[in-house]
Every structure is written in C-alpha cells, then in structure tokens.
Computed example of a mutant assay.
Amino acid sequence: MVMASRRRPCRLTPETDATQLPATARELFDALPPLPGLRAEVIDERLIVSPVSTPEHARLAMLIHRALIPLLTQRGWDAFAGNVDVCIDGPRTPVEPDFVVAPPDCPRWGVRELLSSGLLMVAEVVSPSSAEDDRVKKPPLYAAGGVPVMLLVDPIAVPPTVTVLSDAKEGEYQTVTRVAMGSTVRIPDPIGLDLDTAIFSGSQHTP
C-alpha cells in the first residue's frame, strides 16, 4: 500500500534562488539529485550524506541476511541489505538502515520508502564515522517509529559486541540485551531466533 507520493518540491541546481531553498532537512533530502555511490539520511534534523559502505561493513550486513535465510524463506519475508530507504512514521524522516526485515506487504511512503511501523527488524553495523548515530541517535528514532526490534552489530567496541533492542514504548526500547561478539543472543518476536554471533567473529575488520 502506497501511503503518499514522495514529493520533490525543488531540484537543487547552481541557478536555485535562495527563496527556493528547502526549509527542512526532509525537504532538502527530497530535493537532492541522484547521488551515485552515496547514501543520504536525516538524523536529528541533520541531513547526512556519506559514502556507501566498505566491503567489510557490507559483509557484516550480509552475514545477518545469511543467518536469517531459513526464517525468511519459511515466513515469506523480505530482507534488504543497505539498499532501501525507510521513512520514520511521524516525523517522516528518511533513514537507510544497514539491514531491514519486512513483510512483502509493508506499507510505503511514496514509491521507494518503507514505513517504519510496518517493519519487523532493522540492523545497524557500527563504523567509526557512524558510531554516535548508530549507538545513540538511531535507537530512539526506530523505537518512536514503531520498529519492534533493532539489532546493533558493533565490531569497533572493545570488546566487540552485539546488542538487541526490543519492547518499544514512548520512543525508547525498554529491553536491551548486549553480548560479547561470539555469544548467542535471542532476537525476540516477531523474529523469534537465537542468533549465534560467532558468525561475525571472522569479520571484525574496521568497517
């Protein structure tokens, strides 16, 4: 179900008049031209444009996908590794998680943005440039947007950790389970899976 058309009120060009400039970070995001090789998100009212992930970073996201393939197949769910925009319900801010699990009928905001309240899980892989956003800014953003489970893979922590956040209420995840990378952690419903985080242990290069 498409909730609304994604509007691009203006296209930024060298000739853009100051009076035509977007007023909000969301409007600026909508006005961006195609940015090959870059990803754009709005976090805490900041438009963040960053390079696409390194191979090491992408590998960790794909390891999550690989671990979930039997479950995805059994339940008919979709999964996306770093190539889909998510619209946070409420403020309508766009983010691009490193990994997303969604039902095939997940509602959308416009053509390409999945609505956060329809997702089953998001995952972020922490890198030096994204550490504060992934660890601090994004959990309340996803919780407020109705995402039931967030998985945080943190290969740059000392020691490396994997954290599962769930039970979202009033913009905060009430349950936070953190384990050392290499341990098993429970991902609660709607996923319902014991994840052996040893799958990440051979990929702890700086993402």
Rank of each mutant, 00 (worst) to 15 (best):
T175A: 12
P148Y: 05
A143K: 01
L35A: 11
V86P: 04
P70D: 09
G146S: 06
A102Y: 09
I187D: 04
W77K: 00
A4W: 02
R11Y: 04
P34D: 13
E113I: 00
L71A: 12
L28M: 13
A144I: 01
V111R: 11
W109D: 11
V162P: 01
T206L: 09
G192M: 08
P22H: 11
E132K: 13
P55V: 07
D189K: 14
V86H: 07
S53P: 08
P14Y: 10
D30I: 01
T175K: 13
L35F: 10
E41P: 03
S50R: 12
Y173E: 05
A123L: 07
P190E: 10
T197Y: 02
A143F: 03
S203A: 15
G145N: 01
E15S: 13
I191F: 10
R59S: 12
D89G: 12
P51M: 09
P104F: 13
P34M: 11
D105Y: 10
T24K: 07
L114Q: 01
I69T: 14
P33T: 10
D98Y: 04
I187R: 06
G202H: 10
K137C: 02
R11C: 04
D17C: 10
T163D: 02
V100I: 15
L21Q: 10
A67S: 15
S117V: 04
P103Y: 12
V136A: 06
Q20N: 13
L60K: 11
C106T: 15
V136R: 11
E132L: 11
L21Y: 12
D189Y: 08
S127V: 05
R46T: 08
L115C: 08
V86L: 09
R75G: 00
V86E: 05
V185I: 15
R39H: 07
F80G: 01
T175H: 09
T19W: 11
Q20C: 13
R7L: 15
A79N: 04
D189A: 15
V158P: 07
L72F: 08
S5G: 12
A157C: 08
C106V: 15
S166V: 00
P104K: 14
F200G: 03
A58W: 05
V101S: 08
L120P: 02
T163V: 00
A102W: 08
R59W: 06
D133C: 01
A144T: 02
Q20V: 05
V149Y: 03
R75A: 00
S203H: 14
T73F: 00
D196P: 02
S183A: 15
R112N: 13
D98C: 06
R46F: 04
A144V: 00
G118Y: 07
D44N: 14
I64P: 02
S130V: 08
P36W: 13
A40M: 05
A168H: 05
A102Q: 11
K137F: 01
H205M: 11
V95Y: 04
R66D: 15
N83E: 15
G145T: 01
L21N: 08
D154L: 03
P94F: 09
I48Y: 07
S130I: 06
V164Y: 01
P159A: 07
V125H: 03
V95A: 09
P155F: 07
S201R: 12
F200Q: 03
R178W: 00
S183C: 13
A23K: 14
S116Q: 03
F200N: 03
R178L: 00
L35Y: 11
W77G: 00
A40H: 03
P159G: 07
M3P: 01
